[in-house]
Design a protein around this nucleic acid. Sequence first.
RNA 1: GGCGCCAUCGUCUAGCGGUUAGGACGUCGCCCUCUCAAGGCGAAGAUCGCGGGUUCAAAUCCCGCUGGCGCUACCA
Length: 489
Amino acid sequence: MSEPQPVRVRIAPSPTGDPHVGTAYMALLNLIFARQRGGQFVLRIEDTDRVRFVASSERMIFEALRWLGLDWDEGPDKGGPYGPYRQSERTPLYAEAVTSLLERGQAYRCFCTSEQLDAMRREQIAAKLPPHYNRTCRRLDPAAAAARAAAGEAFTVRLAVPEQGATTFRDQLRGAITFDHANVDDQVLLKSDGFPTYHLANVVDDHHMRISDVIRAEEWISSTPKHVLLYQAFGWEAPRFWHMPLLRNPDKSKISKRKNPVSLIFYRQTGYLPAAMVNFLGLLGGGMPVADAQAGDTAATEKFTLADMMARFQFEQIRLGGPVFDLKKLRWLNGLYLRALTPEGFLQAVREGMFSADYLAQITPLVQERIETLGQFLDLADFFFLDQVLPPPEVFLPKKRDLAATLAQAAELLTILESAAWEHAALEAALRQLAERTQWSAKEVFMLLRALITGKTASPPLLESCLVLGRARCSDRLRRFLAHPHGAK
RNA sequence: GGCGCCAUCGUCUAGCGGUUAGGACGUCGCCCUCUCAAGGCGAAGAUCGCGGGUUCAAAUCCCGCUGGCGCUACCA
């Protein structure tokens, strides 16, 4: 058809928590893709989920990506010709899109409540039917529906998926993929709070931002037909789709914080170098030609920079099987990078990465009144600097509780650390609530957490220590304990 | 359950019709060495998920099965 448009790609993270390794993986791939084809790399913040929104998250995403050297050409912080780059600031665009869909009958208002939808889903599952919206409201008279909406009744807007036929799209790596419309749900496009869902916002923004290639994780394949249908409904040309393999936990499930450290902040805080992380990510999924050398130094060929990737990475060579995120190999690579530093560079890395003035300043107030000589500093504060900590035997050989109960409680603690607001009052409240709910004394709960976080039964103030250590590292310690209650690994 | 994607050593991968199936991490052993690492050398580890085809010839192409994973939300 028309001449190829300029290449424009994007990543679209949601600010719902710590920046994720998966985001870094996608950022890396998109960046390389853009650079290889003289295109632009856009960062768009998808902050349409107001329930899971975390205010500090956006800044952390910026910092983490910059730390890795994965900088973008256009984004919320640097602007660009297709802004704004935060979806919460683009609501008029979505409203306009919804209106046009409604007018043409390609979407409809739905007044079903969450309770009704839940009930419907339960029935369908009980009847062994695939759970789908039953399209009750699709049969409503549009004028009547508009009147109800005008009268203030809450509603969502759903995509009117054609009842017949199928949608086929081309995945650049896999070829044609077809979904029968019978298997495509009438997706909610606009939530009752007035915010768009991912599906709508994503399509509208990708179009307005002139995105040429959507490079995203494989988990999106099943919703792509909905997106294609939307492009068609709007009369827009769809971008090319490249679905990348999903990073995996050691058990092959989709990588998750429950089974693997996924926070980029964790890797930064525990002393991984950005170049090593980028290199490691580049190794996953193929794509980077790694000479297999009967002919020489393979370590040198598995070690490469971002610039090397831009020069040699081949998207067509990507393997479709989801790679396990192998911490062991990451550590090996990191060691390679660490040893390659000049003595000065290494000194600087230790100083900045492990003993920054800023970090020390957070720790010293917790320790000052508890020691008599400076030499005792590490007796008390060592856990702030260790990769992992060995919980004392009291924890896995409890007197009052058995190991099973301890593990169950540790799992509860992990949930709190992962989900509670990261501040003193909220954490304390959650912990006390847990104690009450599980019939443990507050003292027991705090001691268990203390032991797991600090590796000691006596420590600086617990919650303050947790806040300094950070959510990612605290969670990791609990995760380790749950995986290996008896220690080291 | 339905739909979809995927499938080479434990893990990351090379391989694109003819190879003793190559490399890396990890593991083990030896060397080096005051220790530990690093480094060097070496070993074990994959009947290429299974079964059918196609072909003189299949890890490579086709079909079926099995398995894994993803989606199945007013989350992304």
